[in-house]
Design a protein around this nucleic acid. Structure first.
Length: 320
DNA sequence: GAATCGTGGCG
DNA sequence: TCGCCAAGATT
């Protein structure tokens, strides 16, 4: 049962029968078999050819992609990822440059603290792991900016280990297909993690690919807003569909908008600093926002985060 | 557990 | 037009 990975024709166990019974609450679908096979078969045909999924992609390149993809669409990551790795093909290459260069190269991906932490992570990798991305989950988790999702993603996708890789796509897919609920849980319970792990095939390489396949299905078909169930390989055994596709419990209230927030001011300030080198004067920064109180608070926040440094009275720059 | 932290595309 | 949404981490 190690090599059930062949791309085409996994329809053996697919059975059009679909006994229509998986609506039971604790429906822990058999064990580690059919569901993953169905998704793997779909993935082989419909999965995107993303560059970080290609063979021979380095663990560093995969880790960079995972960090960039946090809360950021693939289409926006692609060009930045290419340029980033062209410039810094290894952690040592990045660690050798000022952190500000990482922030600048980050461009408009958003959440620029990720760039700072990636630079910090590269430094740790050089100093404590001989320049190689560590393979153990605990070592990955210890890196700045690497949380539970990203650590497992790197372990699985770069080192082909068998770990449940649970992002929002997998949470949503699991909530619907297995639990019959429209919305993913806010957080992943220990038990959900175990159950998702049990869906993975035993073979580690196949398990790693299955994790990518789950995420892909959630990203392309089992999407949040208008799921394309007609194109889903799990249509015949989806608990949510079997239950009549009950609507979501309403949108989780949005904390706040973006316009007018400190976040927007920080974004504007940093945009000026990215495009200006090496430094800019106070009067330039003063033009990005009218309210001096909020502007000052935002700049102080950026400095506090280490994204900006004051190089002289009234003169600011990206960190070195 | 809730709040915070960017940005841009899309229905 | 505007709210929702996109491979989370940190505090």
């Amino acid at each position: 049962m190690a090599g059930m990975t062949s791309t085409a024709s996994t329809a053996s166990t697919a059975g059009p029968a679909s006994p229509a019974g998986p609506a039971s609450p604790a429906g822990i679908s058999s064990a580690s078999g059919p569901l993953a096979d169905l998704v793997l078969g779909w993935f082989a045909v419909c999965g995107r050819d993303l560059p970080w999924r290609r063979p021979l992609t380095s663990p560093w390149a995969i880790m960079v992609s995972e960090v960039m993809l946090q809360q950021t669409p693939v289409s926006r990551v692609l060009p930045v990822w290419e340029a980033w790795l062209d410039r810094w093909p290894t952690p040592a290459a990045l660690a050798a440059e000022p952190a500000g260069e990482a922030v600048r190269a980050w461009g408009r991906l958003g959440y620029p603290r990720r760039a700072l932490r990636l630079h910090q992570a590269a430094t740790v990798v050089v100093e404590r792991h001989d320049g190689e991305i560590p393979q153990h989950l605990d070592d990955l988790l210890a890196l700045p900016g690497i949380g539970t999702y990203t650590a497992r993603a790197v372990a699985a996708f770069a080192f082909r280990q068998r770990h449940p890789v649970v992002d929002v796509n997998v949470r949503r897919l699991f909530a619907r297909a297995v639990e019959g609920r429209a919305d993913p849980p806010a957080t992943v319970s220990r038990r959900d993690l175990v159950e998702i792990a049990e869906l993975l095939p035993p073979d580690t390489e196949t398990a790693a690919r299955a994790s990518a396949a789950f995420m892909e299905l959630g990203a392309l078909v089992c999407v949040a807003r208008a799921p394309r169930c007609a194109a889903c390989p799990l249509l015949g055994r989806c608990a949510w569909v079997s239950a009549g596709s009950p609507p979501s419990a309403g949108p989780a209230r949005r904390p706040q908008g973006y316009a007018g927030t400190d976040r927007q001011v920080r974004g504007r300030l940093l945009a000026v600093l990215r495009d200006a080198s090496p430094a800019v004067g106070q009067e330039i920064l003063d033009q990005v926002w009218d309210d001096p109180v909020q502007r000052t608070r935002a700049l102080a926040g950026l400095i506090d985060d280490g994204l900006v440094v004051r190089v002289a009275p009234g003169v600011y720059a990206l960190p070195s």
